[in-house]
């Protein structure tokens, strides 16, 4: 995966969560499936998406929450 794809992937994840704020809670597994499909042409794998989520959480752009199951959201 190129650096450019990586940036696009991370933006796509953040935008997806932004778009559905207060409408849908995204489980990390949902995001992996969604992004794997969306970026399959660019050779993005499950592990790439997981790594992107990890970077986003480490940098504080996304945070985890829990309500009956774990989900990802934007910081409040």
């Amino acid at each position: 995966m190129t650096d450019e794809t990586k940036t696009q992937l991370e933006e796509a994840i953040v935008n997806l969560i932004k778009e559905f704020t207060n409408k849908k809670r995204f489980k990390p597994g949902d995001i992996v499936k969604e992004m794997e499909a969306k970026f399959s042409a660019k050779g993005v794998t499950k592990d790439d998406v997981k790594a992107a989520i990890r970077d986003l959480a480490d940098s504080g752009r996304l945070i985890y929450g829990y309500a009956g199951g774990s989900f990802l959201s934007l910081p409040e």
Binding site: P28, R54, A57, D58, G60, I63, Y64, G65, Y66, A67, G68, S70, L72, S73, E76
Partner: peptide
């Protein structure tokens, strides 16, 4: 009450 947005940075658990 359970759950919510509590955690430490980077970890979801």
């Amino acid at each position: 009450k359970h759950g919510g947005m509590v955690g430490v940075k980077g970890y979801g658990s």
